[in-house]
């Protein structure tokens, strides 16, 4: 990793900065992560399989995966819409709203959690109206979806926005002057150009949602088999000093995170090629 194509650069400091960077990553990241994987490996296949395939754990995978997917999908549609509106239209308060989009990224997840549950509880500002229609959000699976939508909100907006800003007006003009309706132009010219960026944002929101803990635990009610997400199970196992059980499920989550990152890298490569 350290071999340089030395084209006799006059800039100094490669050894120092690269050495520091690799040492730090090794100490903080590589060794501890390897420690977890080796720890899991020592427990043997039958014990590992039993830990990760217990019905309660399977139910949590299903919830975490499905709720993350729904949250990311909502963000794909509405994030795309928000990006479109922010780039293409003028309206009062636009700069303020543009800045606010980053709030879920900067706000601590515990704060998001207690504010969402207060909002969606049956007596809350939003919950009291939903109750009239028989919709319960707090302490249900829908609550998990709401929390995961909240924390994934910035990603699609922020990946689509720059692509939309750079989109050449000539393409749309050419399409329109060749007789395409506005709808056809959007569908056949604009959307395909935005697709890689939108999917990257979708995958980022999904990755973030899969591992999310703080915002979910307050609103989900944490009922086993019903509203218990996978990270919560890991916390439970650590509190009972079942390190092996926790490590096994943690390894599954680590592998899932790694696969999603691979997907994101692939999408970014595709997006870069397209631009």
């Amino acid at each position: 990793m350290t071999s340089v194509n030395r084209t006799r650069s006059v800039i100094p400091g490669f050894g120092l900065t690269m050495g520091l960077s690799l040492f730090y990553l090794g100490l903080i990241f590589v060794i501890p992560v390897a420690g977890l994987l080796i720890y899991t490996a020592t427990m043997g296949w039958p014990a590992f399989w039993a830990a990760i395939s217990h019905p309660q754990v399977m139910a949590s995978y299903k919830l975490s995966f499905t709720a993350s997917l729904i949250g990311a999908s909502v963000n794909l549609v509405f994030g795309g819409l928000v990006a479109w509106v922010l780039v293409r239209y003028r309206f009062p308060g636009k700069r303020l709203i543009d800045a606010l989009v980053d709030l879920p990224f900067a706000l601590p997840t515990a704060v998001a959690g207690i504010s969402l549950v207060t909002l969606y509880a049956s007596t809350g500002w939003v919950g009291q109206y939903l109750t009239l229609f028989g919709v319960k959000v707090a302490y249900t699976q829908l609550g998990v979806v709401v929390a995961l939508t909240y924390i994934g909100l910035p990603f699609v907006v922020r990946t689509v926005q720059p692509v939309l800003e750079d989109l050449e007006a000539e393409l749309e003009e050419a399409s329109a002057s060749l007789g395409a309706s506005r709808f056809t132009t959007v569908r056949r010219v604009i959307l395909p150009a935005l697709l890689p960026a939108a999917l990257t944002g979708f995958a980022l929101a999904f990755a973030r949602a899969l591992g999310e803990y703080g915002s979910v635990v307050f609103i989900s009610g944490n009922l086993p088999y019903r509203t218990e997400i996978t990270p919560l199970l890991i916390v439970g196992k650590i509190e009972q000093f079942d390190y092996h059980g926790a490590a096994a499920i943690g390894t599954v989550m680590l592998v899932a995170a790694f696969l999603v990152l691979l997907l994101i890298n692939g999408l970014q490569w595709w997006a870069a090629k397209r631009r």
């Binding site: 990553l25 990241f29 590589v30 501890p32 992560v33 420690g35 977890l36 720890y39 997840t109 990755a207 973030r208 899969l210 591992g211 999310e212 803990y213 703080g214 996978t230 990270p231 919560l232 890991i234 916390v235 650590i238 390190y243 926790a246 490590a247 943690g250 989550m253 680590l254 995170a257 790694f258 999603v260 990152l261």
Partner: peptide, 19 residues
């Protein structure tokens, strides 16, 4: 690799250091 901590669940980060 620098991106990875972003995708790892905070709970798993805690677990790594508990282990």
């Amino acid at each position: 690799i620098i991106d990875m901590p972003f995708a790892i669940s905070p709970v798993v980060v805690g677990l790594i250091f508990v282990v």
